[in-house]
Nucleic acid binder design. Structure first.
Length: 287
DNA sequence: CGTACGACCTGCCCGC
DNA sequence: TGCGGGCAGGTCGTAC
């Protein structure tokens, strides 16, 4: 589910809901996700006011008033949902809205104003950690991240410099978070189609002109996905539990055997496996 | 160092 | 209807 646009959607949902709010109670339903939770996580979280919620790569960063930042990763299947506890009106009467705890609701954050944030992650590839805010950049999960694809530094020059001599495929190079971060399997496939680059090409052999098209395509695809509220396959939901709509715009991802969407192209989308992950592309439009 | 690959998990879908 | 196999948005550790 969660590549950069989905994480951005989560951040945009969380920011107005919890910034300035006091964390009153944290319910931790298991000892770990991908890794054990940090020591004394409950105590270190409770009593903080949320100063800010932001994104770095595919990580959600929650800055806290006592000087720590909570780092949250959604892995493959992580979700964040926001509820409002308390009395609500229905047509006939008032009722107390207390959502039941669902399967895989691993951590629940209750705020003083009755906002509830739920972290749900069936596959548990996600992670939660705490780190002194001033040392965030040194954190293991942050220190090897490349530049943000929506930043100004991300341009053709940057890709030329970083892909030079790389023997791996351009697809794998884009999935590697140490050059450009935040891209995942879906948006890499999509951006390569938009820029007409074969995913099989070696990163170091892609011409500058094509890398220029690639930077534009990456920007475009990410921005459009963010605008449509995050995409992803079957069932990405934003923090209000609503579906994103970008999946209707996929040109290649999960479209094996379907017609290429380039005007006048009569080719079918192919699926191959590269470094263990599915790649979807048009063998005619992408060279 | 760069690169390739298995491992970590659950759920779902497909074919038999 | 049940069961086994394969596959899924990501990333890390290990081996070469």
């Amino acid at each position: 589910m969660p590549e950069l646009p989905e994480v951005e959607t989560v951040v945009q949902g969380l920011l107005p809901a919890i910034s300035g709010r006091l964390i009153e109670n944290v319910i931790i339903n298991r000892p770990n996700l991908r890794w054990p939770f940090p020591l004394d996580m409950k105590e270190r979280l409770e009593g903080n006011v949320v100063l800010n919620v932001r994104r770095r790569s595919k990580y959600v960063l929650v800055d806290l008033s006592r000087g720590e930042t909570m780092i949250l990763h959604l892995g493959m299947s992580g979700r964040v949902l926001i509820h409002k506890l308390g009395y609500e009106k229905s047509e006939k009467n008032m009722y107390f809205n207390k959502p039941s705890v669902e399967k895989h609701d691993h951590v629940i954050f209750d705020f003083e104003d009755k906002t509830r944030v739920v972290y749900n992650d069936p596959r548990r590839f996600g992670a939660i950690d705490l780190c002194r805010s001033v040392e965030l950049n040194k954190h293991k999960m942050m220190s090897n991240l490349g530049i943000e694809p929506l930043s100004n530094q991300f341009n053709a020059d940057f890709l030329v410099d970083n892909f030079k001599y790389r023997k791996t495929s351009v697809k794998s190079a884009l999935l590697n978070q140490k050059y450009v971060c935040g891209l995942g399997n879906i948006y890499v496939c999509e951006a390569l189609w938009h820029s007409g680059i074969s995913p099989l090409k070696l990163a170091g052999s892609v011409k500058r002109k094509q890398l220029e098209l690639l930077t534009l395509a990456i920007r475009k695809v990410l921005k459009e996905a963010i605008e449509s509220g995050g995409s992803s396959l079957n069932d990405f939901k934003n923090t209000a539990g609503e579906l994103g709509y970008f999946q209707h715009n996929f040109k290649v991802y999960d479209r094996e055997g379907n017609n290429c969407k380039t005007k006048g192209c009569d080719s079918k989308i192919e699926k191959i496996v590269q470094s263990g992950r599915s790649t979807f592309f048009c063998n005619k439009c992408q060279r």
